Simulated assay, not measured.
Amino acid sequence: MTDMRLYTSLSKFRYLDRNYSFKYLFIAFVGVHIPLIGIITFITLSDFTSLTPGMVILSTLGFTLVACAVTLLMQNALARPIVETKNALIDYLSNKKLPQLPTDFKDEAGLLMSNTCTALQELDNLIKEKRDFIYLLSHDLKTPLHNVLTITHLMKEDTDNDSKEEYINLIRQSTQYQLQLITSVLNLATSEFTEGNEPHVLFLEPMLSKVLNDHSTSLQNKKLQILTDVAPTIQIKVNDELFSMALSNLITNAIKFSRRNSEVMIRAAVMDDHIMIRVIDYGIGFTAANAPSFEPFTKSSRSGTMGESSNGLGLYFTRKIIKYHGGSLIAESEGDGKGAKFIIKLPLPA
């Protein structure tokens, strides 16, 4: 950081600390009076009778030049906050480096530095959010597409015409879910919320039933049984599509790490100050050393019990969605082979 000692020193004086223009006026005032003070001092210390008009003129010019030089240097030093802010903007645009400008000054230059830091930090976060949601879109679009591919394969192998209508309904459900997913994620990524996309109070049980229905093919493939303990009166305040996506990710995760012919339990309860939703599987579990990470693209991602792959984004975005709704998400397990619990806590609907 370039020297800003003059600006810092002047900011310690009353009336100068909150007004940047007063600092310039103060320096100009001092600069204007340097020649006058110099001439008075020169005449006082000299033999007045020996002074000639030429000596007075030369001394006045000399003090004036010195005053101009001192004033320009001080004003240049006082301009450092603006120069530093300019350099910080250039550095961010060129290298994406966030500035480290001081933020505790109260005048216009101080507010400029503080607001620049805040604006660039928010811009940087926004850029990361946009990138994250692009990854989210590419990640979660795979689930309905895989369902459609699986169903079309079953249709090709199944010669029973009575099953065709069921397959067509499943394809329709998957494609509708995919369209809702695209709309919801793009709205969130662009921050273009309409009234219909804002969180609203709804019953949890119908939402959960719909999400489970979307996973019926995957459940059948692993011969898994879903057990639910959700009171029909439980209400949550969420964006329907986004929170459905979060539930879908957790159920996908539970299916992936469950063994064939086992169970997945989903429970929900109203607590004193929050709503708790638990997605419980009895699969491979985890220890503290290999606990699931909520960070993107983590190297700790594990394959499912049937070799299902993971790109390390599902849990990351699930937690982001739950945090967006003011909630929290944690994972628990008693160890390898002892299953896992993913616990959502949401605020009570207002």
Rank of each mutant, 00 (worst) to 15 (best):
residue 72 L to P: 05
residue 125 N to P: 00
residue 349 P to F: 14
residue 59 S to N: 10
residue 86 K to F: 08
residue 281 D to W: 06
residue 243 F to A: 07
residue 268 A to D: 09
residue 10 L to V: 02
residue 73 L to V: 12
residue 101 L to C: 02
residue 35 P to H: 13
residue 235 Q to W: 12
residue 259 R to T: 02
residue 6 L to I: 01
residue 281 D to P: 10
residue 191 S to Q: 06
residue 114 S to V: 08
residue 177 Y to T: 09
residue 99 P to A: 10
residue 285 G to M: 03
residue 181 L to H: 09
residue 195 E to N: 04
residue 246 A to M: 08
residue 212 L to H: 10
residue 290 N to M: 12
residue 182 I to P: 01
residue 179 L to K: 09
residue 239 N to C: 15
residue 17 D to V: 12
residue 113 M to S: 04
residue 16 L to K: 00
residue 203 F to L: 07
residue 233 T to Y: 09
residue 107 D to F: 03
residue 90 I to E: 10
residue 113 M to R: 00
residue 230 V to W: 14
residue 5 R to Y: 09
residue 132 D to A: 13
residue 5 R to F: 10
residue 154 L to I: 13
residue 140 D to N: 15
residue 301 S to G: 05
residue 27 I to E: 01
residue 78 L to N: 01
residue 224 L to S: 06
residue 209 S to R: 14
residue 129 E to G: 04
residue 63 F to R: 01
residue 80 R to N: 06
residue 190 T to G: 10
residue 245 M to F: 12
residue 3 D to Y: 00
residue 113 M to F: 07
residue 198 E to N: 13
residue 285 G to T: 07
residue 146 H to R: 13
residue 133 F to I: 08
residue 31 G to S: 09
residue 160 D to I: 04
residue 4 M to S: 00
residue 193 F to H: 10
residue 324 Y to E: 15
residue 249 N to Q: 05
residue 69 A to G: 07
residue 339 G to M: 04
residue 221 N to F: 12
residue 3 D to A: 04
residue 261 N to M: 13
residue 101 L to A: 02
residue 192 E to N: 09
residue 69 A to H: 07
residue 185 V to N: 06
residue 53 P to F: 03
residue 143 T to V: 12
residue 186 L to C: 12
residue 115 N to F: 05
residue 45 L to F: 05
residue 3 D to K: 03
residue 132 D to L: 02
residue 207 M to F: 11
residue 166 E to W: 14
residue 213 N to R: 06
residue 227 L to R: 11
residue 12 K to G: 03
residue 167 Y to H: 14
residue 283 G to Y: 05
residue 315 L to H: 02
residue 344 I to W: 05
residue 342 F to W: 15
residue 171 I to R: 01
residue 298 T to H: 01
residue 254 A to L: 02
residue 49 T to P: 00
residue 345 K to N: 14
residue 187 N to M: 10
residue 185 V to I: 14
residue 46 S to Q: 03
residue 316 Y to T: 09
residue 336 D to V: 07
residue 183 T to A: 08
residue 279 V to D: 08
residue 261 N to K: 06
residue 191 S to L: 04
residue 82 I to Y: 00
residue 58 L to T: 11
residue 77 A to Y: 02
residue 24 Y to N: 04
residue 288 A to Y: 13
residue 105 F to R: 04
residue 41 T to F: 15
residue 344 I to M: 07
residue 149 L to W: 15
residue 153 H to W: 09
residue 321 I to E: 00
residue 238 V to D: 12
residue 78 L to Y: 07
residue 135 Y to T: 10
residue 188 L to R: 08
residue 209 S to M: 12
residue 80 R to Y: 03
residue 265 M to C: 04
residue 322 I to E: 02
residue 150 T to Q: 15
residue 151 I to W: 00
residue 308 E to P: 00
residue 20 Y to E: 08
residue 336 D to S: 01
residue 56 V to D: 00
residue 169 N to F: 08
residue 296 P to D: 03
residue 283 G to A: 03
